[in-house]
């Protein structure tokens, strides 16, 4: 997995947890459940991830244990002033385009065009079918979420617009490949 992507994912879990602590102190298991609810269950977290992230945040001074652990040894975490500042900074600054994953698909298509024996249009078609299918299932999911449930609808929309961009781009690739083929054919004949 792309390390830049893994990094940006870790950063968003970290900031997501800080955001959930903004209204008041919470337990780790509570944070896991609230994170999933807030993002429309699109990103399930495992509890280990939550605790390792909380440990990192505690070490970094952005959160602290609030009072003593309960009888089961569970700790309530609270934001520190430094954590609150970091959260404000996160909301206040846009996410850089470069922190997005490197695009395996674009690389694959670039290779498909130049590799002998590979029919690039078929690669495009197959990819577009599967992107369209995903778009359909995401839309079906959206149809089941009440529009008042803003957080979930917005997260699902984010996934929908991203997949739609891929489909539109693949439409464009197909058109380019088709045009390239019709303009190239006479040349090939001229050579023969």
């Amino acid at each position: 997995m792309d390390t830049a992507y893994a990094y940006s994912v870790l950063m968003s879990i970290k900031h997501g947890l800080l955001a959930l602590l903004a209204p008041g102190p919470k337990y780790g298991y509570q944070l896991k459940a609230e994170f999933e609810t807030a993002t429309g269950s699109a990103w399930p977290l495992n509890i280990g991830q939550v605790y390792s992230t909380l440990q990192r945040l505690e070490k970094g001074g952005q959160i602290e244990a609030d009072g003593v652990p309960d009888d089961d040894g569970r700790v309530v975490y609270a934001l520190t002033p430094s954590g609150r500042a970091e959260l404000a900074d996160w909301f206040g600054s846009p996410i850089a385009q470069e922190s997005r994953p490197r695009d395996e698909l674009a690389i694959k298509l670039a290779m498909a065009v130049s590799t002998p024996g590979v029919e690039a249009r078929e690669v495009v078609q197959a990819q577009r079918s599967q992107a369209m299918s995903s778009l359909q299932s995401l839309t079906r999911l959206k149809g089941t979420v009440p529009e008042e449930d803003l957080a979930r609808v917005m997260v699902i929309d984010s996934l929908i617009f991203a997949v739609e961009a891929e489909v539109s781009w693949l439409d464009r690739c197909e058109a380019r490949l088709r045009k390239a083929r019709t303009t190239q054919t006479p040349e090939k004949e001229a050579v023969q």
């Binding site: 399930p44 299932s137 839309t139």
Partner: peptide, 19 residues
């Protein structure tokens, strides 16, 4: 008509695999 698609199984982005 060159292609026809239906909804795939629900997609969940599982971040567990990344850590």
């Amino acid at each position: 008509i060159v292609d026809e698609t239906t909804a795939s199984a629900p997609v969940a982005v599982d971040l567990g695999a990344l850590t």
